[in-house]
């Protein structure tokens, strides 16, 4: 989501006024915009008196930050050890094939982003897929297929509406 520069500055300024670091400021922007626009990095550098290179280093170091806009829906496949031994690579592979993107990428229509996460700590349910915060446990490739079908249908319906 694109925000006016004034709003971006306000988000960053709010963290700077508290005891937050530049990381907290970027987290606030990431949460609102689902990515870090270039303007946010520049503003954060100015507000925290840091060279842009340092802000860029932080923004590219941590997995939670993205410099590219993410999709409307986020699909996370847990790749923790418990999920791995129970077959999460096959689940991921199926979703990647159906969405036509590799893990970490966003579909061309910006509907879906496919991500992997390192252990969500719900190992009894593994393999786990989280779709927009909704957990699906004990996944298999066929169940991933059903999930993909349901999500694409819902996305299409949402567009019509």
């Amino acid at each position: 989501m694109l925000l006016p520069v004034g709003d971006l500055y306000q988000l960053i300024d709010q963290e700077a006024r508290g005891e937050g670091s530049v990381i907290a400021a970027l987290e606030a922007v990431q949460a609102r915009c689902r990515y870090l626009p270039r303007a946010a990095l520049i503003l954060a550098g100015e507000r925290f008196h840091l060279p842009l290179a340092d802000v860029y280093a932080v923004a590219t170091f941590y997995n939670a930050f993205s410099l590219k806009p993410k999709g409307r829906h986020c699909l996370q496949v847990c790749m923790g050890t418990a999920c791995h031994v129970r077959g999460s690579p096959r689940v991921l592979e199926r979703l990647a094939t159906r969405l036509g993107v590799s893990p970490g990428a966003t579909t061309r229509d910006r509907e879906f982003t496919l991500e992997t996460v390192n252990c969500l700590g719900a190992c009894a349910l593994g393999p786990i897929v989280v779709a927009d915060g909704e957990y699906s446990g004990q996944m298999t490739a066929p169940k991933a297929e059903m999930l993909w079908k349901r999500l694409t249908r819902q996305a299409a319906e949402a567009q019509h509406a």
Binding site: S21, V22, I23, A24, L26, F61, Y62, N63, A64
Partner: peptide, 19 residues
């Protein structure tokens, strides 16, 4: 913010400092 290495104590402190 999603970096496994931040569980290491000196990396963790750098992260709290905003680096």
């Amino acid at each position: 913010s999603g970096a496994f290495v931040c569980g290491e104590e000196t990396a963790l402190m750098a992260s709290i400092e905003g680096r």
